[in-house]
Simulated assay, not measured.
Amino acid sequence: MRLHLWLETEDGQIFGLGRAQLLAKIAAYGSLKKAAEDLGMSYRAAWGKIKKTENVIGSKLIVRSGPRRDGYELTDLGKALLEAFDVWYGEVERMALERARTLFPWPIEGFGRDPERSSEPGTTEVDSG
């Protein structure tokens, strides 16, 4: 079983697993460039996703850190959004997996995640979010 969950408004997608993975990688590496490379996307695409979300919500998710040109860290809002999405995604995924197992006559397994643990950005493939 695989779920695709995201948040969007009339202005388009705000946040999904791809953006969660991107923020998690930025937090881990302290670098937007390294985060983008690790996820197989261009710096420009990664920057565009971050800027789209920031423009729609009206707040920064990342800020420059240190003297390095590509050095970034998550803002408090970026950290809170990542954590909230993780909790929400994990809860929905566990509930959906449990329900699917009661409804369908074949074995249902999660896709690349341990259903007993919370969602972990970076453990599944990047989607368009």
Rank of each mutant, 00 (worst) to 15 (best):
M1K: 07
R2S: 14
L3A: 08
L3F: 05
L3T: 08
L3V: 00
H4C: 00
H4Y: 02
L5W: 06
L7I: 12
E8S: 06
E8V: 00
T9H: 13
T9D: 09
E10D: 14
D11F: 11
D11G: 13
G12Q: 09
G12I: 00
G12T: 02
Q13L: 12
I14H: 05
I14T: 03
F15E: 02
F15C: 06
G16V: 04
L17G: 14
G18L: 11
R19N: 13
A20F: 00
A24V: 08
A24D: 13
K25F: 06
A27V: 02
A27Y: 09
Y29Q: 07
G30Q: 03
G30C: 10
K33D: 14
K34P: 01
K34Y: 10
A35H: 04
A36R: 05
A36H: 12
A36W: 12
E37I: 05
E37M: 13
D38I: 03
L39I: 08
G40R: 11
Y43M: 01
Y43K: 06
R44H: 13
A45K: 09
A45C: 14
A46K: 03
A46E: 05
W47G: 12
W47P: 00
G48D: 15
K49Q: 11
K51D: 06
K51W: 05
K52W: 04
T53S: 04
N55Q: 13
N55Y: 08
N55V: 04
N55K: 13
V56P: 05
S59F: 10
K60W: 11
V63D: 13
V63Y: 06
S65F: 15
G66E: 08
R69G: 10
R69W: 12
D70N: 15
D70S: 04
E73S: 11
L74K: 02
T75A: 10
D76N: 04
L77F: 14
L77M: 09
G78R: 07
K79M: 12
K79W: 07
K79S: 10
D86G: 07
W88G: 04
W88R: 12
Y89F: 08
G90Q: 11
G90V: 00
G90I: 03
V92H: 09
E93A: 01
E93C: 02
R94L: 06
R94N: 04
R94V: 00
M95V: 01
M95R: 15
A96W: 04
A96M: 04
L97T: 01
R99E: 14
R99K: 15
R99N: 08
R99I: 11
R99M: 12
A100F: 07
R101M: 03
T102N: 15
T102D: 01
F104Y: 14
P105Q: 05
W106S: 06
W106R: 05
W106V: 12
P107G: 06
P107F: 02
F111L: 03
R113E: 11
R113S: 05
D114V: 06
R117F: 09
R117E: 09
S118D: 14
S119P: 00
S119V: 00
E120P: 00
E120G: 02
P121M: 07
P121I: 02
P121R: 04
P121Y: 04
G122P: 01
G122D: 03
T123C: 03
T124K: 15
E125A: 10
V126R: 15
V126K: 14
V126H: 02
S128M: 10
G129M: 03
